[in-house]
Design a protein around this nucleic acid. Structure first.
Length: 582
RNA sequence: GCGCCUGUAGCUCAGUGGAUAGAGCGUCUGCCUCCGGAGCAGAAGGUCGGGGGUUCGAAUCCCUUCAGGCGCACCA
C-alpha cells in the first residue's frame, strides 16, 4: 500500500502554499499551474495568472511567491513576465527513482478506489463472425477496464452479446429444414456464418420460408423446448469462437462476462409498462415511443426512441433500458461506460435521458457513451473487402502477424523457431492494438498494416523493442556478475538525459489518472512513446555497463530497471505483451 | 434542416490558457571501432481551415463561417 507522491505533486503543493501566502486570504488555494518546462524541471504560471485578480504586478507576485518557497525543497527563479522556473534538488530525484523501485506497483496510488464501474464493450453477434467493426470496442473497452481496475476501481466487464432477435427464427428454421448442413465443431465459425447467409438468402427469396421463420420466432419466444435447444447450441458455438478471438487478442473477456440481450427478455414488458405508466412512452403511429426535448428529424418532427415496435416486438432501446436499470440496481454501479461506435451517440443520449426521467439512472450515477471513430480502408472509406464484404477480424490479425513476422525475420536474432513465432504473434497483435489505441479515440483512422508494424515511430513494435533493449542490458549486467538491486546513491550527479528520464518515469500515475478521467487511451500511448524516446536519449549519452564508476553504474541500472518496469506496466495496461527478447 | 465528430509540416498524427506549436515517415547534410545503428545531431518544411471576440497571453475558451464524415421511425 505504499504509494509514492509524484515530484510534480510535491512541487505543486509547495508552490500553492507559497502562492497562498503571497496572496490575500480570499485568493488562497489558487491553482499554481505547475507544468513541465524546458527551461527548468517545472514552471509555475500561477503567479502570472493570479496577478490581475490580486491587483499586483506579475513579477512582484512571482518574486513574493519565490521568497515563500525559500524553506521548501524547490529552487525558484523568476523569469520573463512572471513565470516561476522551478528546479528540484538532484538527490530528491534520485530518491524518487529509488522509492518507485521499492514500492509495490511503482508506487501508483489507487485513485479510483471506491468506484464501481461497469464497462460494456465488444458486443459481437451470435452466428456471425467477429469483424473489423468489433475491433475498436473490444480493444478500447479492454484497455479502459485494465486502467480503471489498476487504479483500484471495482470493474465489471460486460459483453452485451447479440444473442436474441428475429433472425434466430430464420436461422433455427433453416437448420431444422437442412439437417444435412454441418455447422458445429472445429473452426465452425465460418460454417456458421455461411449458414447465416444461406438462411438470409432463402428468407429473402422464399415467402413461405419467411412465414415459417416468423412462426419459429414465436416458438422461440414462447420457450418451445426443441427450438430453445437449437438456440442454445448456436449461442455456445459462437461463444467458443469469440473466446478464441479474445484469447488471441489478449482480451480479458470470458464467458463470465457475457451479458447477452436474451438475459433481459423477461424484463422488457415491465420496462415498457413503467414508461407508459409514467407518461414517458406514448403511442406514436402504432409504436410506443419516448421523446427527448430538442431532438428533431429532417422534417422537424420529434425523433422517437422506440421501445416497442408496431408489431409488438421490443426495440433495442427497451433492452438497453433494462440493462441500464440492472447495472444500477444489481451491480450498484457508480459509473457505466458504453464503448460503442460514435454513430450511436443520439441513441445513447436518448436512452440516458429517458432513464433519468424514469428514475432508473440517479444523478449520482454517471452513464457515459464512450464513442470511437470508424476503421477505414486504404481508400479512406469504411474498411471492406474488395467485393464489399465485411473484413473478418481473424484475417486482419493474420495479415498483421504475417507482416510482423516478415519484418522481424529481416533482423539477426538467436531465437528458437518457437520463440520467434511467439514474438511475431506478440508483435503483430500488439501492432494492431497499439495502432488503434494510439489515435485520438473519436477520430476515424486508416488501417495500414505496413505502418503499424514499422520498427520506428509511434508503434507498438517500437515500444516492445525499447522494452526488450532495457531487459537486454539488465540481463547482461546479471551475466557480468554485477549485483542487482544495489541502493541508489542520491549524492551522485544527474546527467541531463538521466534527469529528463527520471522525471518522465515519475509521470506514469498522473498519465493513468488522465486516461481514467478522459477515457482516452492514446494519452497512455503518447506517454510511453515519450518515455521510450527519453530512454533512447539516456542510452545514447550515458554508458551503463561501461560506466567507470560502480555507483554511477548502479544508479543507471536503477533507471534501466525502472524504465523496463514502467514500459511493461504501460504495455500491459494497453493489453500488449512485452517480451524480454525480440 | 437540426445535431454530433473532425480540420495542425508533403504524408500519418500528438499538443493540460503560457515563453520559440512538436513527433514519426519522407527529403537533405553530417556523426559513431556503436552496453542491441531498430541509433544520434542538424537542416528544410506551418496564415494551427477562414474571420471575429475574451485574456497580460489562444492551436487550446466563446461566437461566426467554410470544408469533410456521421446521425436523425419500428435493423441492432
Amino acid at each position: 500500500m505504499s504509494h509514492v507522491v509524484a515530484i510534480k505533486d510535491q512541487v505543486e503543493a509547495a508552490v500553492q502554499a507559497a502562492l497562498s501566502q503571497a496572496l490575500p486570504a480570499e485568493l488562497a488555494g489558487t491553482d499554481p499551474v505547475v507544468r513541465r518546462s524546458d527551461r527548468a524541471d517545472f514552471q509555475a504560471n500561477g503567479p502570472l495568472a493570479a496577478a490581475k485578480r490580486a491587483g499586483r504586478a506579475p513579477r512582484d507576485l512571482a518574486t513574493a511567491t519565490a521568497e515563500h518557497l525559500a524553506a521548501s525543497d524547490v529552487d525558484p527563479e523568476v523569469s520573463g513576465p512572471g513565470f516561476l522556473n522551478l528546479t528540484v534538488p538532484t538527490p530528491t530525484i534520485w530518491r524518487q527513482v529509488a522509492a518507485r523501485l521499492a514500492a509495490n506497483d511503482l508506487g501508483i496510488a489507487p485513485t479510483r478506489h471506491g468506484e464501481r464501474t461497469v464497462i460494456d464493450y465488444s458486443a459481437p453477434n451470435v452466428a456471425k463472425e467477429m469483424h473489423v467493426g468489433h475491433l475498436r470496442s473490444t480493444i478500447i473497452g479492454d484497455t479502459l477496464a485494465r486502467v480503471l481496475a489498476h487504479l483500484g476501481a471495482e470493474v465489471t466487464r460486460q459483453n452485451h452479446v447479440g444473442d436474441w432477435g428475429t433472425q434466430f427464427g430464420m436461422l433455427i428454421q433453416f437448420i431444422d429444414e437442412h439437417p444435412e448442413r454441418t455447422w458445429q465443431g472445429e473452426a465452425s465459425m465460418s460454417a456458421l456464418d455461411a449458414l447465416y447467409r444461406a438462411a438470409r438468402a432463402e428468407f429473402n427469396q422464399d415467402p413461405d420460408f419467411a412465414d415459417r421463420s416468423r412462426a419459429r420466432v414465436v416458438a422461440l419466444q414462447s420457450g418451445d423446448a426443441a427450438t430453445l435447444a437449437t438456440w442454445r447450441e448456436l449461442v455456445a458455438e459462437s461463444e467458443a469462437a469469440f473466446q478464441a478471438v479474445y484469447d488471441r487478442l489478449g482480451i480479458l473477456l470470458t464467458l463470465d462476462d457475457a451479458d447477452g440481450e436474451s438475459r433481459y427478455n423477461a424484463d422488457l414488458p415491465g420496462v415498457v409498462d413503467e414508461l407508459v405508466a409514467r407518461g414517458i412512452a406514448v403511442d406514436s403511429d402504432g409504436a410506443l415511443c419516448a421523446f427527448t426535448d430538442g431532438v428533431v428529424g429532417p422534417d422537424g418532427d420529434p425523433v422517437p426512441l422506440i421501445v416497442r415496435k408496431k408489431d409488438g416486438g421490443f426495440g433495442y432501446a427497451a433492452t438497453d433500458l433494462a440493462t441500464l436499470r440492472l447495472r444500477v440496481d444489481e451491480y450498484r454501479a457508480t459509473r457505466i461506460l458504453y464503448v460503442v461506435d460514435a454513430r450511436q451517440a443520439l441513441h445513447f443520449r436518448m436512452v440516458f435521458d429517458v432513464a433519468r426521467r424514469a428514475g432508473w439512472l440517479p444523478d449520482d450515477v454517471d452513464a457515459t457513451h464512450v464513442p470511437f471513430g470508424t476503421v477505414l480502408g486504404p481508400d479512406g472509406k469504411p474498411f471492406k473487402t474488395r467485393d464489399g464484404g465485411t473484413v473478418r477480424l481473424t484475417d486482419l490479425l493474420d495479415q498483421a502477424v504475417a507482416r510482423a513476422r516478415a519484418e522481424l525475420a529481416k533482423k539477426d536474432h538467436d531465437l528458437s523457431p518457437e520463440e520467434f513465432e511467439h514474438i511475431a504473434q506478440a508483435a503483430g497483435i500488439g501492432a494492431v492494438k497499439y495502432a488503434d489505441l494510439s489515435n485520438t479515440r473519436t477520430k476515424d483512422y486508416v488501417f495500414d498494416v505496413d505502418r503499424m508494424v514499422a520498427l520506428n515511430g509511434n508503434t507498438g513494435v517500437y515500444l516492445q523493442y525499447a522494452h526488450a533493449r532495457v531487459r537486454s542490458i539488465l540481463r547482461k549486467a546479471a551475466a557480468a556478475g554485477i549485483p542487482a538491486g544495489r541502493p541508489v546513491d542520491p549524492a551522485l550527479p544527474l546527467h541531463p538525459a538521466e534527469r529528463a528520464l527520471a522525471l518522465t518515469l515519475d509521470e506514469l500515475a498522473a498519465t493513468l489518472d488522465d486516461v481514467a478521467g478522459t477515457l482516452e487511451p492514446h494519452r497512455l500511448c503518447g506517454y510511453l512513446f515519450g518515455l521510450a524516446r527519453a530512454y533512447t536519449e539516456f542510452y545514447d549519452q550515458c554508458p551503463v555497463l561501461r560506466a567507470d564508476d560502480d555507483g554511477v553504474r548502479a544508479n543507471r541500472l536503477a533507471l534501466c530497471e525502472l524504465t523496463g518496469r514502467t514500459l511493461a506496466t504501460g504495455l500491459d495496461l494497453l493489453g500488449i505483451a512485452a517480451p524480454d527478447r525480440m
